[in-house]
Amino acid sequence: MPATVPSAEMTETELLDRAWELSSSVALRPEPFGALAYHFGNRRLTFLKRPELVTLVRALAEHPDARSALAATGVPEQQWGGYAAALRGLAAADMIRLR
């Protein structure tokens, strides 16, 4: 799979099969509803609206692909589609990156 495929064009399967990590210029600030992500480079602010999504994003770097990070986070498999969509949005804003 070529590394140049932009996240917006990846299928859900491709997206879940890849290895991701939080961008180095992003900081996560815990909030009651989840977290606030700030990108020091493009100065964009994004909200992670569920605590599970925060756990997942933090776990990405420790797993060979998003799929196993999801499993480790304990997200039920039938919800993976929703989380894949959230990851796609985060990748588009450079909050997470392929590694």
Binding site: P30, E31, P32, F33, L45, K49
Partner: peptide, 20 residues
């Protein structure tokens, strides 16, 4: 009580741990 989930706007109404 702060609602779980819901829109961001509803969450913001209850305030954040630090200002944005």
């Amino acid at each position: 009580a702060r609602p779980e989930g819901g829109t961001l706007l509803e969450q913001f109404e209850f305030g954040l741990d630090a200002p944005i």
